[in-house]
């Protein structure tokens, strides 16, 4: 069997890691939402985190961007501590310049009253005050495939796909090293989703930004990530190269996830049985 744990066994402060997460834990009451999660994202790499609701994938992402605090564990960006210390404004801004996030719902993540230009200008003013941003705004819109006309549009005048392009432009505005995408294409129709996935692939090629791609969709993971970790109940159950993990899943839960994707010849009864068997195993183990 190939070594599926290599992506999780994080060596101490490996210099070449872009993002390095070690021993992350977070509990809410009795629930261990994130339980000893470790992984490494290489520079310009793309790492997927897959799992179902309650697997801890979103909490992990929120800890990395600083929207949630870990009980223990470290997050390092290029070897520097990224979480824990420095809650002041300057420290928060510095962290935001390294890691940015794109949320699932572009209807909720954009201010309905702010034209696109103002959305981008606000971020740029906050991070790079006292400079002229017009050229950069133009460049960003161009980078995400929006015309100059979109600059004056308000979110309600834009389609879901266009809004998500704006959200991506806003995240790219500070030239982050890591982009955390939390179900960033889940709310889009497939034809639009394909446009955004292609756009993300282009941006990674051009800017060498690293992606942490949180998703429940194995097709999307296959399409945009190099490596993947599979989470269940807060823990990493399998990790490795995306093609390997999806092609020859080693853990029964990964096998179940893979079998659950509807395709011709799909057997929902067998999946139900496998799911219950796995739940019984868990019950027996605890």
């Amino acid at each position: 069997m190939p070594d599926r744990t290599s992506a999780t066994a994080a060596p101490a402060a490996s210099p070449e890691a872009l993002l390095e997460v070690t021993g992350l834990c977070r509990s809410f009451g009795d629930v261990r939402a994130v339980d000893d999660v470790s992984f490494v994202l290489p520079p310009g790499g793309s790492l997927g985190i897959v799992g179902e609701s309650g697997s801890g994938k979103t909490t992990t992402a929120r800890i990395i961007v600083g929207l949630e605090r870990a009980d223990s564990g470290t997050v390092r960006v290029r070897g520097q501590a990224h979480n824990g210390t420095g809650r002041g404004r300057a420290a928060r801004l510095a962290r935001a310049r390294r890691v940015q996030m794109v949320f699932q719902d572009p209807y909720l993540s954009l201010d309905p009253r702010a034209p696109v230009r103002a959305v981008l200008a606000e971020t740029l003013k906050l991070h790079f005050p006292g400079t002229d941003h017009d050229a950069r705004i133009h460049e960003l819109l161009d980078q995400v495939g929006l015309g100059a006309r979109a600059a004056d549009a308000r979110p309600r005048e834009l389609s879901g796909g266009q809004r998500q392009r704006v959200a991506i432009a806003r995240a790219l505005a500070v030239r982050p090293e890591v982009l955390v995408l939390d179900e960033a294409v889940a709310a889009l129709d497939v034809s639009v989703q394909a446009q955004i996935l292609n756009l993300l692939a282009d941006i990674r090629e051009e800017t060498a930004v690293g992606y942490l791609f949180i998703t429940h969709d194995l097709g999307v993971v296959r399409c945009v990530t190099d490596d993947v970790i599979v989470m269940r109940s807060g823990r990493i159950v399998e990790a490795g190269r995306t093609g390997e993990v999806l092609g020859r899943p080693a853990h029964p839960y990964t096998r179940l996830l893979s079998a659950s994707v509807p395709r011709p010849g799909w057997d929902p009864r067998a999946i139900g049985a496998a799911r219950r068997a796995l739940a019984e195993e868990d019950a027996a183990a605890s």
């Binding site: 796909g161 034809s191 639009v192 989703q193 394909a194 446009q195 097709g219 093609g243």
Partner: peptide, 23 residues
């Protein structure tokens, strides 16, 4: 055909999807 081509497939090799232009 275009819808089928733009759907990411977990069993297919990675790479660019064939998106449908426009809206």
């Amino acid at each position: 055909k275009a819808l089928l081509d733009s759907t990411p497939d977990p069993d297919a090799p990675p790479g660019r999807l064939t998106a449908i232009e426009g809206q």
